[in-house]
Design a protein around this nucleic acid. Structure first.
Length: 364
DNA sequence: AATAGGTTCAACCGCCTATCG
DNA sequence: TCGATAGGCGGTTGAACCTAT
């Protein structure tokens, strides 16, 4: 048997608050306070509302000194940094942002910041009309979007820190930084309670953490996303950040990536897989249609679809003139674009957020 | 002009924890 | 110690609104 409801559901009003209800609640609390009992409050005021609903309304919209919309770049950075550090503990994050509510931040993250991180295009903000008087008032107060989150930009995600609004509107790639030469600095500010117990991430861990939070899975989680013919996994062991097994017919190749001391991603192929070698060499640097189809098909590894769908990882076939990064005379035929590595250094502060192109050497 | 689909965000739901008798 | 209750929180929902076709 479940617990008793906090109020008589049949006799309470639900849905948007009217200006009259807002006025009653606000006036009473400003004069008498909450009395330490939200459940009893609506009866005292004469509101047919659940006590929890009153509490929510007051905390999120009626109490003084609240800010709505217009998240600043600094706030964006703090939210992102804290999300990476502590996850979806919105109340903790809200405590670091005066005037913001957990609900506001949660909504802002879910509808805008997350998509921004994933490089998803967002339309211009809109005036949503006056279906709610308070909302309308807030819309007026915040102006016509000049300080809206859309006009602010995530400094940690900006390329060269100078992404224009126009560029943002037309970007096709994720907002991750584009190359190692333009590494931005994440001004991570871990709140005091977490400062000393903050994560001591290395490169892979911060990458892993962020990707997990955004929906990915890793081999260290005892989960191996598998696709028929393609097994892709991120490894949390050692310095290896990426490993992929490519199966073609009865043959297979295992490709792994590691971060070296120069923060560069290096690739290696392990084992001898004549079938794959023959395939690769025989195609002169191009995939056979079946293999290309395999890696670019819509059948992405389970649990990692979002990486592909959102453009965080983009399989591309590139031409044979592309410069390789592993120093051999090999020819890149398989290109992982826009993958991310980042560095946590000391005291839980992100110093660098590095983007690397992953390229796959042609079999020798 | 109609409408299907996408976006936003206020509000609700239900679970967990703290407090009190 | 235990049960009842309220507060707090994160996840989810759905209405309002916008855009694309």
């Amino acid at each position: 048997m479940g617990r008793a409801p906090c109020c008589d559901k049949a006799n309470v009003k639900k849905g948007p608050w009217s200006p009259e209800e807002d006025a009653k609640l606000k006036s009473y609390i400003e004069k008498h306070g909450t009395g330490g009992n939200w459940i009893a409050l609506p009866q005292k005021i004469g509101l047919k509302r659940c006590g929890k609903s009153c509490r929510l309304r007051w905390l999120n919209y009626l109490r003084p000194n609240l800010k709505h919309g217009g998240f600043s770049v600094e706030e964006d950075d703090i939210i992102c940094s804290l999300y990476v550090s502590i996850g979806s503990r919105w109340s903790v994050i809200a405590a670091q942002l005066p005037g913001r509510t957990d609900n506001d931040i949660k909504n802002y993250w879910n509808t805008r910041l997350k998509k921004k991180l994933l490089g998803k295009h967002r339309r211009e903000p809109r005036n949503r009309g006056n279906y709610n008087s308070v909302k309308q008032e807030n819309d007026v107060n915040r102006g016509s979007g000049t300080t809206d989150g859309d006009s602010s930009s995530l400094s940690l995600l900006q390329e060269n820190g100078s992404t224009t609004h126009h560029q943002e509107q037309h970007q096709q790639q994720p907002c991750w930084p584009q190359n190692i030469n333009n590494m931005p600095v994440l001004p991570l500010q871990v709140p005091l309670p977490y400062k000393n117990q903050g994560p001591c991430f290395n490169d892979q861990d911060s990458l892993k953490k962020l990707l997990i939070k955004l929906g990915g899975r890793f081999s260290g989680d005892s989960y191996h996303p598998t696709l028929d013919g393609l097994n892709l996994e991120f490894s949390s062991h050692g310095q290896q950040i990426y490993q992929e097994q490519v199966h073609v017919g009865s043959s297979a190749a295992c490709i792994s990536a590691t971060i070296n001391n120069n923060n560069e991603v290096q690739f290696a192929q392990t084992g001898q897989y004549p079938g794959v070698d023959n395939l690769v060499q025989g195609q002169g640097g191009n995939f056979t249609p079946s293999f290309e189809e395999m890696v670019s098909s819509s059948n992405y590894p389970d649990g990692l679809e979002f990486l592909y769908n959102e453009g965080m990882i983009d399989h591309k076939i590139i031409d044979t003139t592309t410069t390789t990064t592993w120093g051999e005379t090999s020819t890149p035929i398989y290109h992982h674009h826009d993958s991310l590595a980042s560095t946590y250094q000391g005291q839980g502060v992100i110093q660098e957020c590095v983007l690397q192109d992953f390229s796959y050497p042609r079999a020798q």
